[in-house]
Design a binder for these strands. Structure first.
Length: 639
RNA sequence: GCCAGUGUAGCUCAAGGGGUAGAGCAUCCGCCUUGUAAGCGGAAGGUUGCCCGUUCGAGUCGGGCCACUGGCUCCA
């Protein structure tokens, strides 16, 4: 008996067919169809219907078809480029999370000004509604064709494709090595935009050619494209590099002080101190002990730790004094280990959890510096847990739970974990690795965390789990990292005396929850759009007099709030109208604006305006104080 | 480090294809005495990122540094 395959049409109707291409089956109904989904695999509509199973025809509206749309958009881009810039060599052009890109080697450099021209040519190709045809060539034919065209990158790709049937796609005069799938015709790519121009190494290898990458995006509808562009605009508006100086939180004065070195202004420092206080209190509560260690250490230390052998290019040059070499610390671990080693340790003391807000310096290459997110001097919220093998599971579980607790306090609610396992080159014994990796896995599961395994991506010294959070714009950021270290305990010969009276090697876990204060502040600024929750707002309330007659009252109100522990300012400078002051307070995103006019003075109240623009009218002062305190205790953006 | 681009007053931006720089806001000084997102006037503020070069003359053209932006590689 022959089982026919089932094809589900966009309307939901099921048809039985096999062997013939989808497009033949669909006929006129192919309009708007983008691809087919069979066993979770995207198929091209030109392919024959599989012999068995169920296939669903996708329209552009199906989320699964987005990839096909964008991949085809990338081909349209490449097509346009070959028309406008003859002699351009093609590399690769995949769909990515937010759109697509295509890498080219242009005969002459191009710039952003060329993007509109390219878009225009793309529109032409789309208007021509060229059918995309799949062409199968033998390996020899493919090689001859690519060689004749001088497509060196494609030849390199070809060499890695197995088999003798090589898939190409043709649209009009444009032919590209590609395994598809693609939309039936270029006319289906309606809503697209070229976004950026960037350099990219061929195959990501810094030793190979630097290509020009053109980024773009495409959506099935104009609304979705518009929404995406708006989102990008909003993200730009929230950029911490704009908001930071605007809100007077920090500056980076590269000319005078140096690239990647951050100045924390009073308001930024205020936020930082609030985070630090919270962090330290919570760490003591969780059984950590705070330590302080120096910023520099002798070369012997870094020799022993192995940093001079493996990490030197990321370290600042040595400071030589009295014939000794000192290095700025790029990490805190060796110092914490040194504290551990000051005496003979008993198994009864473990686990030891040393935490430190440790400032480190790393010589990051100039091209990678980026606002607060990538700097050269930064303070990690670091800790090292030194424990017995039998304590590993419990410790890891606690660290992970602790990390989630801390991150949630900052309004992060969506997390993804990445579990990186043993790489090819590793040190330590496989049994330890297995145990550690298992502990990480179990902890993630115990917390109900979605995690992805990055096989072989662990550091050479141990497996790790990283937490990625999403900010309020759903952008991912990696903050927390929890790493095992099988290297340093060995190198520093760390031991403790077990119940058997003999020396044993402890496990060491390195972890940072917020990552670094610099990066974290940058992320927080963007996450909150500068409108910090009350507990973190550098100025929580501002008191504005309507005229100079109310200045004394405004100052009295401010003093009253200050006595209640509220961070408040009275803005009493002359020559500014109330409107001006309100505007200024709004732009500073101060949560509460207290306005005092003759009415409020008479009634002993303050008119309360929220950062949101909401005007609550005159309120008795005790109520205002209670409201601010309650909001602060909540640690949310609610006012 | 690499590719492309950018660098003008504290900030945001102007200065037709070379003729020694302008505006708004902020700042300061006056006036106004203000009721919920910019009251009015005036002053001050720049060796146009830095250094060479071409030119009678460079913000503008060329070269080299420095820094930043978008990426790549790397990373807290």
């Amino acid at each position: 008996m022959v089982t026919m395959a089932k094809v589900i049409l966009p309307g939901g109707e099921a048809v039985e067919a096999q062997g013939i291409p989808f497009l033949d089956l669909l006929g006129p109904r192919a309009k708007g169809a983008a691809g087919a989904l069979w066993n979770g695999k995207l198929l091209d509509l030109r392919e024959p219907i599989p012999a068995e199973g169920e296939t669903r025809i996708l329209t552009l509206a199906d989320p699964e078809a987005l990839e096909v749309l964008r991949h085809t958009a990338a081909h349209v881009l490449a097509h346009a480029v070959t028309r406008l810039f003859p002699g351009t060599k093609l590399a690769i052009g995949p769909a990515i999370a937010d759109g697509f890109y295509y890498d080219f080697l242009f005969p002459e450099p191009i710039s952003h000004e060329d993007l509109p021209r390219i878009e225009e040519e793309m529109r032409r190709i789309i208007a021509e509604d060229l059918p995309l045809e799949r062409v199968w060539l033998s390996r020899q034919e493919a090689e001859d064709l690519l060689r004749e065209r001088g497509e060196n990158y494609k030849l390199e790709l070809l060499a890695e494709i197995p088999g003798d049937r090589i898939s190409f796609y043709r649209q009009g005069e444009f032919l590209d090595l590609c395994r598809g799938p693609h939309l039936p015709s270029t006319g289906l790519v309606q809503h697209f935009k070229l976004l950026d121009l960037a350099g990219a190494y061929w195959r990501g290898d810094p030793n190979r050619d630097m290509l020009t990458r053109i980024y773009g995006t495409a959506f099935p509808t104009a609304e979705e494209l518009e929404k995406y562009l708006k989102w990008r605009e909003e993200a730009r508006r929230r950029d911490h590099r704009t908001l930071g100086p605007q809100l007077d939180l920090f500056s980076i004065q590269n000319d005078m002080i140096g690239a990647g070195l951050v100045l924390w202004h009073p308001k930024g420092a205020r936020i930082r101190r609030l985070i630090e206080d919270f962090w330290v209190a919570e760490h003591y509560r969780a059984g950590y002990q705070l330590v302080y260690t120096p910023h520099i250490g002798r070369s012997r230390l870094w020799q022993t730790s192995g940093h001079l052998d493996f990490y030197r290019e990321s370290m600042y040059a040595p400071i030589v004094i009295e014939g000794q070499e000192f290095f700025l610390k790029p990490m805190n671990c060796p110092f914490h280990i040194a504290i551990f080693k000051t005496k003979t340790r008993s198994y009864r003391e473990l686990p030891l959890r040393y935490c430190e807000l440790g400032t480190v310096y790393r010589f990051e290459r100039s091209g990678v510096l980026h606002g607060l997110l990538r700097v050269r001097g930064f303070t990690q919220d670091d800790a090292h847990i030194i424990c017995r093998p039998d304590q590993v599971e419990e410790e890891i579980k606690n660290v992970l739970r602790f990390a989630l607790y801390i991150l949630r306090a900052f309004g992060f609610t969506a997390f993804t974990a990445y579990l990186s396992t043993r790489p090819e080159k590793f040190i330590g014994n496989p049994a330890d690795w297995e145990r550690a990796t298992e502990a990480l896995r179990q902890a993630a599961e115990a917390e109900g965390l979605a995690y992805e395994i990055k096989a072989g991506e662990g550091a050479f010294y141990g497996p790790k789990i990283d937490l990625e959070v999403q900010d309020s714009l759903k952008r991912p950021w990696q903050l927390t990292t929890i790493q095992f270290d099988f290297n340093l305990p060995e190198r520093f010969d760390m031991t403790y005396i077990g119940p058997d009276g003999r020396e044993h090697r402890p496990y060491m876990i390195h972890r940072a929850l917020l990552g670094s204060f610099e990066r974290f502040l940058g992320i927080l600024i963007e996450h909150y759009g500068g409108a910090f929750p009350v507990w973190l707002a550098p100025v929580q309330a501002v008191v504005l007099p309507v005229s100079k007659n109310e200045v004394p009252y405004a100052e009295k109100v401010a003093a009253l709030l200050e006595a209640e522990g509220i961070r408040v300012e009275a803005w009493t400078k002359e020559g500014k109208t109330l409107s001006w002051l309100v505007r200024e307070a709004q732009m500073q995103k101060i949560p509460y604006i207290l306005i005092c006019g003759p009415r409020e003075v008479a009634e002993g109240k303050a008119a309360l305006r929220l950062r949101t623009g909401e005007d609550l009218g005159p309120q008795p002062l005790p109520e205002v104080i209670a409201r601010i305190k309650a909001a602060s205790a909540q640690r949310t953006q609610a006012l």
